[in-house]
Design a protein around this nucleic acid. Structure first.
Length: 476
RNA sequence: CGGGGCGUAGCGCAGUCCGGUUAGCGCGCCUGCUUUGGGAGCAGGAGGUCCUGAGUUCGAAUCUCAGCGCCCCGACCA
C-alpha cells in the first residue's frame, strides 16, 4: 500500500527514516550530523513547546535566555561535569579574524554559564528560589547521529533552579519529573516508567538523575526526559552562597531538567505504522483534513464550496486543512495525508452531500464512519479525544506485553537479544555487574524505582543481595 | 576512530570492469487534452560543474594519484 516506506518488520531503522521523509518532518543538512527541521516537523515541536511551556509556567517557572558561548574556564569548574561533557564539545578558538585569548565552548548544556550568573543574583534566602527555564539549542559532538534521536545540534528546554534547602530542590526535581510524566502520558500518548539513573548513567555533575523511559515499537527504550538533583555541586563550583534566616552563609541547592527534539523521534517510533506517521491529536499541527471529491467540473465548485461551508465554524476550535487541489485525485490525497499523520480525514463527495453526511476516517485504525453533517463538529472533537486515548492504550498494551521479570542471567541475555523487551531484574548495585549487561547484551539499566517496595532478591549477575528490581533494556 | 557502502538532473539509479559521436532510465517538475470515491492515462517539454584537483591520452563519467563529502554498522551520548 505505502510506496516508499520500508515495513517495520523488514528494517525498523530504515522505516523510521522513511517515515520522517514521507511525513516531511526533517532532512539531513549540508552540515554533518545536523538536520533541517522542515515546517511540519517544526510545527510538532511548536506544539510540544507550547504545552510544556504552559505546564512550566503553571508550576511557577519563568523563561530567560543565556549565551550560546561558555568561557573554557567555566566548563572546568565542576570536575564531573567537564569530564562528561568536554570530549563532546565544539570549541570556538577564533573570532573576528583573531585567535581568542580564551576559547569559547558552544554550550552542550548551560549549568556553568547559568551558575556563574546566579552567583551575582543570589545573596539572601529572600532571593530564592530561582525557577528559570530556557528554550535553546545546544551542541554535542556525537560520533553517530540519527534524525531527531541524536543530532549534533538539537533544540531543547533546560530548566535551572536554585533553592535554599535540599528538600526544596529534591521536591522541585520530582515536581518536574511529574510534569514530564504528565506531558508524556497526556500529550504524547506515551506511557513511561519513571525512576532513578544508576551512578554510571547519571548526568555529569548531578547527585541524582531522575528520568522517564518509554518503550518503542521495537521494544527498545528511549530516554524521553531527565530531571537532575544537582545538590550543591554547581553552587560550590561557582561559589554561590546565601545568608539564611539565621544569618548563616550556606551553599545553594540546584536542579536542572530537560527534554529535547528527541521527543519527536519518540512520537514517531511509538505510534507510527507502515503507512507513515501517526500523531496523537493533541500534538498534531493539523488535526483534520477535508478532501472534497468530484467527478465533473460542475461538481467541483459545489464540493469546494461545501467544504468551506462545512468548516465555517471550526476556526479557533480545530486546526484543519481543506485539500481541494485540482492536480491530485482523491486516492493520492488520502495517501499523502496518511503519510503525514493527520489524525482524521474527511471524505466528502456528491453521494455524501446528497445524504447530508460525510465520511470520517481515523488515521490510527483506518476505520471509516458516515457522520451526519449537523453533528460533525461534536463528533470530530469527541473522536480526536478518543484517538488520543486509544493511542495511549495501544502503546501501553505494547509495553505491558513486552515487559517481564527475569531471574536467570542466561535467559535474560537471550531474551534481550530476541525478541527484546523491558526486564525487571535484581541487581546488587555494583558497577561491575551493570557493565556485564552492557558487554553481553548491549543493554543498560534504564532506571531504578524511586520508591523501595519490591521484594528483595539476589543479583541476577553475581547473586549478592538486592533490595529491589531495576529495569534493563536495550536503548537508543 | 575502526568496518562497510556511495558521490552522474530535485530524488532514486544505470552507464565505469573493457576510454570513443549529442550521457541515459524511473519518479518528480512544466504545458495540453482526457480524468477524479484509495497513489490516473496519453502527448509534448524543461532540467547535467558526471564530488574536487592534478595526471595519462588524439579523446576521460570511465584509467592513475591525491583530496573532499555523505550514508550505514560499532565504541561515546538527550
Amino acid at each position: 500500500m505505502a510506496k516508499g516506506i520500508t515495513k517495520r518488520s523488514e528494517d525498523y531503522s530504515k522505516w523510521y527514516l522513511d517515515v520522517i521523509d514521507a511525513a516531511q518532518l526533517a532532512e539531513h543538512s549540508a552540515v554533518k550530523g545536523c538536520m533541517v527541521i522542515k515546517p511540519t516537523g517544526y510545527a510538532i515541536w511548536e506544539h510540544i513547546q507550547a504545552n510544556l511551556d504552559r505546564l512550566f509556567k503553571e508550576t511557577g517557572h519563568v523563561n530567560a535566555y543565556f549565551p550560546l558561548f561558555i568561557p573554557e574556564n567555566f566548563m572546568h569548574r565542576e570536575a564531573q561535569h567537564v569530564e562528561g561533557f568536554a570530549p563532546e564539545c565544539a570549541v570556538v578558538t577564533h573570532g573576528g579574524g583573531k585567535k581568542l585569548d580564551e576559547p569559547l565552548f558552544v554550550r552542550p548544556t548551560s549549568e556553568t554559564i547559568i551558575w556563574s550568573t546566579y552567583k551575582n543574583w543570589i545573596q539572601s534566602y529572600r532571593d530564592l528560589p530561582i525557577l528559570i527555564n530556557q528554550w535553546a539549542n545546544v551542541v554535542r559532538w556525537e560520533m553517530r547521529t540519527r534524525l531527531f534521536l541524536r543530532t549534533t545540534e538539537f533544540l531543547w528546554q533546560e530548566g535551572h533552579t536554585a533553592h535554599a534547602t535540599e528538600k526544596e530542590a529534591v521536591d522541585e526535581t520530582l515536581l518536574i519529573l511529574g510534569v514530564y510524566r504528565t506531558f508524556a502520558e497526556e500529550y504524547m500518548a506515551a506511557p513511561v516508567f519513571t525512576g532513578i539513573k544508576t551512578e554510571k548513567e547519571k548526568f555529569a555533575g548531578a547527585v541524582r538523575t531522575y528520568c522517564i523511559e518509554a518503550m518503542m515499537q521495537d521494544y527498545k527504550a528511549l530516554q524521553c526526559g531527565t530531571s537532575h538533583y544537582l545538590g550543591q555541586n554547581f553552587a560550590k563550583a561557582f561559589d554561590v552562597t546565601f545568608q539564611d534566616e539565621q544569618s548563616k552563609v550556606r551553599y545553594v541547592y540546584a536542579t536542572s531538567w530537560g527534554v529535547s527534539t528527541r521527543l519527536i523521534g519518540a512520537l514517531i517510533m511509538m505510534h507510527s505504522d507502515d503507512n507513515g506517521l501517526v500523531l496523537p491529536p493533541r500534538l498534531a499541527p493539523t488535526k483534520v483534513v477535508v478532501v472534497p471529491i468530484w467527478k465533473e467540473d460542475a461538481e467541483r465548485a459545489a464540493m469546494k464550496q461545501k467544504a468551506v461551508d462545512l468548516t465555517r465554524d471550526w476556526k479557533g476550535r480545530i486546526p484543519y486543512k481543506i485539500d481541494d487541489r485540482d492536480q491530485y485525485r482523491p486516492g493520492y490525497k488520502f495517501n499523502e495525508w496518511e503519510k503525514r499523520g493527520v489524525p482524521i480525514r474527511i471524505e466528502m463527495g456528491p453521494k455524501d452531500v446528497a445524504q447530508n453526511q460525510v465520511i470520517v476516517v481515523r488515521r490510527d485504525t483506518g476505520e471509516k464512519i458516515a457522520v451526519p453533517q449537523y453533528s460533525l463538529l461534536a463528533t470530530i472533537e469527541a473522536l480526536l479525544e478518543k484517538i488520543q486515548k486509544d493511542l495511549y492504550a495501544r502503546a501501553l498494551r505494547n509495553r505491558d506485553a513486552n515487559t517481564f521479570t527475569c531471574d536467570e542471567y542466561k535467559e535474560l541475555i537471550e531474551r534481550l537479544e530476541s525478541p527484546g523487551g523491558f526486564f525487571w531484574v535484581h541487581w546488587c548495585g555494583q558497577g561491575a555487574c551493570e557493565e556485564k549487561f552492557q558487554q553481553d547484551a548491549k543493554a543498560t539499566i534504564r532506571l531504578q524505582p524511586i520508591e523501595d517496595g519490591g521484594e528483595p532478591g539476589a543479583c541476577i549477575v553475581c547473586g549478592a543481595p538486592s533490595a529491589q528490581r531495576v529495569l534493563v533494556a536495550k536503548s537508543y
